[in-house]
Amino acid sequence: MSIFVDEHTKVIVQGLTGGQGRFHGLRNRDYGTQVVGGVTPGKGGADVEGIPVFNSVREAVDATGASASFVVVPPKFAANAIIEAAEGGITFIVCITEGIPARDEAVTYNRLVEEFPGVRLLGPNCPGIISPGKCNIGITSGDIALAGGPVGIVSRSGTLTYQALHELSQQGVGQTTCVGIGGDPVPGTNFIDCLAAFQADPETKAVMMIGEIGGSEEERAAEWIKLNMTKPVVAYVAGVTAPPGRKMGHAGAIISGSKGTAQAKMEALRDAGVHVCANPTEAGAKMVDIVRAM
């Protein structure tokens, strides 16, 4: 099984007529994802290589029965696009947009929680989600993933998500689902949401977790793992050599004072019984060992 999405998930792309939306939307469809529509205000009635375009999410949902949306619009429009998706009846929203102001993210997250409790937001600033062989929503290259499980992947960093997939697929170890939660300060979906879903998914036998400096999500995840997780977890945390006080690209990746260091996160995870590795390659090799011993 997969988490959050599967082969029946119908997806619309908000921003399908833009450069990035078109490239990745079509790539997702080529992968086999049911990309059933696009949304661009004012361009309703057009189509992108056979995918119908609608003026609003509501129209697209009414016409296609989509339940998921891939939001790929510029930062200044992203918050409104997410809310429009929720209002239009979408229950799973993937937003890859990088550079959304933290204030907009905080308001959007809390509006979703208060007004649309059944809606899950993945991202923003994330690579998306791929359930190999079933569904790919986002910007992950489908050919680096391998279907059939048994590993679930959850990662805060985009490119390191690809690296993790690559390390496993090369060794013939497949994935149930790979979720990129994104590196922004207010992620819609966090480590614990994904760990809980993987723990509950019978086909996922082990979980690979990729963290990075900043915030305390890894520490919170460690606490949760300690209390609830029975499946083996392998983790890698990026940024051991990052200097304090400097934002390492992601809005969330910053060591402030003594908080948020890679060392503290690795210690917390180790203490929770997680296999903590020094780099993505080691983490991949460790996971391969675990899976082969099953």
Binding site: S157, T159, L160, Q163, E212, A238, G239, T241, A253, N279
Partner: peptide, 21 residues
């Protein structure tokens, strides 16, 4: 590198194999 996570990880790996970024 492309992506903040991969860039951070690249720094770490260079450090682990005895270099400095």
């Amino acid at each position: 590198a492309n992506g903040a996570g991969l860039a951070m990880s690249t720094l770490d790996v260079v450090n682990q194999v005895g270099g400095t970024a």
